[in-house]
Every structure is written in structure tokens, then in C-alpha cells.
Simulated scan of single mutants.
Amino acid sequence: MGIIKLENIRVFTNHGCLIEETKIGSDYRVDLEVKANLQKSALSDDLMDTVDYVLLNKIVKEEMAIASKLLETVAKRILDRIFIEANMVTKATVLISKINPPIGGDVEMVTIKMTDKRKS
């Protein structure tokens, strides 16, 4: 087994429950961790034998671009697409952070974390 991480993917988009959030937009940080068998690619040195992190980044950016009220909804879409498009991934964890959330306090970010496993 092995782990591939994409850390601090920066996105500006329009998620939120407040009308102002969907109009103005916010900065977000996304962190992604996937588990897969990396032994074959370690020997073959062939991209076809591993999880392409370019694909993972593309999935994150495309799903983050679709406005939603809840970050949980976006995280679920990201996880679902990973299991559809990256066949080698057995488990994935995504963290989505809203930077400077409008919650009436001095809060650097609010983060949701979701994990899912490939269904047999």
C-alpha cells in the first residue's frame, strides 16, 4: 500500500448558505489523501501503474467550481468522482477549508473532513 497526498490546493469559489457568500466568493484550501497499491508503479516507473495526481487535482478543481451550500456536499462529490475515475484508489480523505469564514469572529478557517472507502 501507499499514500498520495495533495496538500493546500488553493481555490476561489462561491460556496455558502449566505447570499453574500455566493455573490462575493471566498478562498478555500483543499487537502486530499488517497490510498492505493503503489508497489507496481514503484517497480515499473510507469504512470499507468499509479494514481495520477494531475487527475486528482482536476477532480478537486472541477467539483469546487460547482457552487453548493455545504462543504460536505462538495466533499462527497469529490470522493465519488475519485472512486469512479481513479480505479486504483481504495480509500480517500478530503479536507475542505473555508479561509476567513464569515462567522462573526476571528477564525482563520473552518474545515470539514470526510473519508470514504471503495465499495466492493
Rank of each mutant, 00 (worst) to 15 (best):
M1Y: 02
N8Q: 14
G25F: 07
S97R: 09
T50G: 09
K113D: 01
F12H: 11
R81G: 06
S97F: 05
A92Q: 02
V110A: 15
S26R: 13
D31S: 03
M88C: 08
S120H: 03
D46M: 12
V54W: 09
E33T: 00
M88I: 05
S41A: 14
D80A: 13
G16E: 10
V60P: 07
K69F: 06
A36M: 04
V94M: 01
S97G: 09
R77K: 14
A65Q: 11
P102W: 11
K69Q: 13
M114G: 03
H15K: 15
C17I: 15
R77I: 02
T73D: 11
R77H: 08
I24F: 15
V89L: 01
D46E: 10
L56K: 00
L71W: 05
V54F: 10
V89D: 02
I19V: 11
L55H: 04
R81W: 03
D116M: 05
I9M: 01
A67S: 13
V74C: 14
L6F: 05
E21I: 14
I78V: 05
V51Q: 00
V30H: 06
V94T: 05
V11C: 04
S68M: 15
E62D: 11
R118E: 02
T93I: 02
M88Y: 07
V30I: 08
N14C: 12
N14G: 11
L32N: 06
T50H: 09
I3V: 07
L38H: 08
D27F: 10
K76D: 00
D106P: 07
C17G: 13
K58W: 09
K91N: 00
L32D: 03
R29L: 15
V110Q: 12
I4C: 01
V94P: 01
V30M: 03
P101K: 00
K69A: 10
E108V: 04
M88F: 13
A75P: 00
K76E: 04
C17M: 13
D27A: 10
G16R: 13
T73A: 12
E33H: 01
N37P: 14
T115W: 00
P102S: 09
